[in-house]
Amino acid sequence: MTKQLDGRKAFITGASKGIGKAIAHSFAEQGAEVHLNARNKNDLEALAEEIRGRHNCKAYVYPCDISNPEDVKQAFVNYRATNRQLDILVNNAGIMQNSLLGMVLPEHILQTFSTNVFGSVYCAQLASRFMMRQRSGVILNIGSIVGEEGRSGQSVYGASKSAITGFTKSLAKELAGFDIRVNAISPGMIETELLEGLAENKRLEAISNIALGRIGSANEVAQVALFLVSDAASYITGQVIGVDGGMAF
């Protein structure tokens, strides 16, 4: 039986947890060879083993911090050592630190933008060179509803995710001539490790702002990611798709 991503090679950043992990599983399940990035090598190797066992596919690891351009370069040099083809890049790695504006430290701004924005740019720069050569490819960026709607206490995080929206729309226009599609997903409140420390009253308050009345799952984001990187979305580029259950702040 043909799978949606048979023969495709996908590089996924921030793959060891949450949405990135769910995306890695969904792509592998649909026949993709997955190349996994995150900072923690042990977590990545455990995930790769899990994916190989569950989906009977190839999975490789590239542990590095994507906020460091030299690390990103080395990861892609390692990738290139055995691969000439790259079909899909998912820029999922990101950090979220909440602070009211008066308590935002310069290093907090730098860390947030270095990972959420600069890291995505570094990865797209190198991945797009493979894709330009083959004149096909898909880049999928993971933004946030906070970047679209804003949220108190998340001005820096929101700014970084708004940057991802601008990056997505501009890059889609720049790379369209090479048949490279660029889209973003803007998740709302998703059940991941990021929510583990959330107080129950805050959780209930957040749910009251979601039209569907519940928190989403990482798999629900992954299914939209799968659609956007598949041929089913062949005429979609430059879009930011909300996966938020109808959330409003």
């Binding site: 370069k73 892609f76 040099v77 290139r80 000439r84 720069q125 190198l126 060179r129 493979f130 330009m132 050569r133 001539g177």
Partner: peptide
Amino acid sequence: STAHMVLIAALEDAYDVMLDT
């Protein structure tokens, strides 16, 4: 500028290198 990026990709492919920005 667009052809320049095509050229870079072609050079990388031909000589098996990965160029710095």
